[in-house]
Design a protein around this nucleic acid. Structure first.
Lengths: 203, 203
DNA sequence: CCATAATCTGAACACCATTCAGATTAAAGG
DNA sequence: CCTTTAATCTGAATGGTGTTCAGATTATGG
């Protein structure tokens, strides 16, 4: 999106340099602390040393800025997951199984680290573009790859591969949410991962 | 909490009658439409034909009113589930299995009917009182009963009964959220229920 | 019937999103 | 280099928000 200068550069000139990126970065910082509902566009602008109206040159309204945060977060979550599963090297069935577990763990760890960003992503704040099939949730594509890998290594059957995404993602996402919101204890998470493996017929 | 007159009674006298209940009822109505983040305390008060400051006699702040909505919703969800499983009569293994599925379906149907109330419940808006063990989420207790019933009828093993809640609730909750927010299609829900049965070793 | 406590109002303060006319500056063309 | 043009940001204004508090109104108990 933004190409020019540093997003956190101090304001010397009248023109900012890369205000759009700076606004998003500052908004993320604030949502992290105050939560998605208490985000103030004026505060974002002030912290960027810019008048409130300047933001409207890049975002038609506040919701649009929030959606930009959401877009960033979905990419970031996918990146984190990619990083986590790439740490489990090996072409074995055991490694493939470990990657499934790590993809689940990294999903939860991301949410635990920044609950407010997680709430923004899945709390109805940002409107995901579900129009196009191509620009699908990148984190979902990571999961697909992990599950394909399980089939390749014979860890799961072809029958289990059908709807395997539906055995993994809802459970992982639900457990994450319920822990974040204090409905089940964090210690329960590994047990949830066990139930996913059971649903897939692993072991 | 409130004991007196109808919550929706028109305003004839200076005193309202049961303002607290009226405020909660009106707030629910507005959250249903506008979503939890766009709730306005002033609008709630105005619709109750009362000055904004009147609300502060019953709620210390807006968040407290939102929490009251959450409390109501958790009770209501439990009631809906209770109603759903009570419709499946019979003391058989088949009936017990059907009740598990219906408890999952009713959870989703509740959320689908009022997504904004569901978002309020699990979006970090209301602070659940996790201090006491006694006043636990009533919907959770419904689930416990359904799972106990499965064990009694030999549908699941004693081993599967361990952590059975963790096989069911996260998957149901996660699937519900992901469908509501448009990440997976509604048609996938029954397949998710299948994976729960698989995780529990049913069939 | 009166005193007291409960309940609600009105006005105020500080903050918010959003709009728009106009000031400032960078970029492009001669 | 200088001027035109387009991009960018400001300042002020509008109408809405949560919250507080002194005071007006009404119900209740003695």
């Amino acid at each position: 999106m933004s190409t020019r200068a540093s997003a956190t550069a101090p304001r010397g000139t009248y023109h900012h340099g890369d205000l759009k990126a700076a606004l998003v970065a500052e908004a993320i910082k604030l949502v992290r602390i105050e939560g998605p509902n208490h985000l103030s566009l004026r505060e974002v602008a002030a912290n960027c040393k810019v008048s409130p109206s300047a933001a409207y040159h890049y975002f038609p309204d506040k919701d649009s800025l929030v959606s930009a945060i959401g877009d960033y977060c979905f990419q970031e979550l996918a990146r984190i997951q990619e990083e986590a599963i790439s740490k489990v090297v090996g072409n074995s069935a055991k490694a493939a199984k470990a990657r499934l577990r790590e993809s689940g763990r990294s999903y939860f760890q991301w949410a635990k680290k920044d609950p407010n960003l997680f709430r923004l992503m899945f709390g109805g704040f940002c409107s995901i573009n579900k129009t196009d099939e191509a620009d699908q949730d990148p984190a979902y594509l990571v999961l697909v790859r992990v599950l394909d890998d399980l089939l390749t290594h014979g860890v799961i059957t072809k029958a289990a591969r059908q709807n395997a995404e539906l055995a993994a993602w809802p459970a992982v996402h639900g457990a994450t949410t319920l822990i974040i919101e204090g409905h089940i204890p964090e210690e329960a998470y590994e047990a949830v991962l066990d139930t996913i493996e059971a649903a897939l017929g692993i072991k």
